[in-house]
Computed example of a mutant assay.
Amino acid sequence: MDVHDIFDVVIESGKQTLFWYDPWLGSGNLKAKYPSLFELESRKRCRVSDRIVDSTHVWRWKSRPVVLGLDSAVSALSRDISNIRLGTGSDHWSCKLSVDGRYSVSSLRKIVDATHVNIPGTSDILWCKAVPIKVLCFVWRAAQDRIPTAMALEKRGIVVNSNLCCSCIGIPECTGHVLMDCSFATVIRNNILG
């Protein structure tokens, strides 16, 4: 998800919005849409208000676009911005995720929850405020097999002396073994649960 999937630029005066770089005219920016004209621009960090003055388009080219055969690109750009009328307010960003245009973490969370990729084995993990965050993170990493066991380190190209469990000599040290199957882990778990 990109920031421009979440926010839109709302143009008022055009004084706070970069003409070529900000995505103020639909999706994407004008630099990407008109790369040849962007190269001709003499002031690349100009504002919208620098290029649209009283419904007139004011260009500052390094050389004339007509000479380079870019007159059709200039016409297309002029058509794209022809309906823009600048006012007096401040330009601002509006959140697409909420009706009122205000950003909230809960609105983003709803989108993330609705579109997240389900990782096998993680659907049972509940993020509970009563459990310390480091414990939740550890459980989450364990469910993804991201704990630095000997086998995981070896998989990432880190040299280890042996990928076998130190307690259960002869059994590969993987996340499942270290947390559940290892005789040492079983003794510790039984002492804790008691």
Rank of each mutant, 00 (worst) to 15 (best):
K44G: 03
K44A: 02
R45P: 01
R45G: 04
C46Q: 07
C46V: 08
R47M: 14
R47W: 06
V48Y: 03
V48I: 07
S49R: 00
S49C: 13
S49Q: 04
S49M: 04
I52K: 04
I52V: 15
D54C: 11
D54P: 05
D54G: 09
S55P: 01
S55G: 12
T56Q: 13
H57I: 14
V58I: 14
W59Q: 08
W59H: 12
W59G: 08
W59P: 09
W59V: 04
R60L: 09
R60H: 15
R60P: 05
W61P: 12
K62A: 06
K62E: 04
K62V: 09
S63D: 11
R64N: 15
P65Q: 02
P65G: 02
V66G: 07
V66P: 00
V67C: 07
V67M: 09
L68H: 09
L68Q: 13
L68W: 00
G69V: 03
G69D: 06
L70Y: 04
L70F: 06
S72G: 07
S72V: 08
S72N: 10
V74I: 09
A76G: 10
A76W: 03
L77C: 06
L77P: 05
S78Q: 14
S78M: 12
S78F: 08
R79M: 12
R79L: 14
R79F: 13
D80H: 13
D80G: 10
I81T: 09
I81Y: 01
I81P: 05
S82E: 15
S82N: 13
S82T: 11
S82D: 13
N83E: 15
R85M: 10
G87E: 06
G87V: 04
G87N: 06
T88S: 14
T88F: 09
T88M: 06
T88N: 11
G89I: 08
G89Y: 06
S90V: 10
S90I: 08
D91I: 00
H92A: 07
H92R: 15
H92T: 06
W93C: 07
W93H: 07
W93G: 05
W93N: 01
S94T: 10
S94G: 06
C95R: 02
C95M: 06
C95H: 05
K96S: 05
K96C: 01
L97W: 01
S98Q: 00
S98T: 15
V99S: 10
D100K: 10
D100S: 11
D100C: 07
D100P: 04
R102P: 00
R102D: 13
R102K: 14
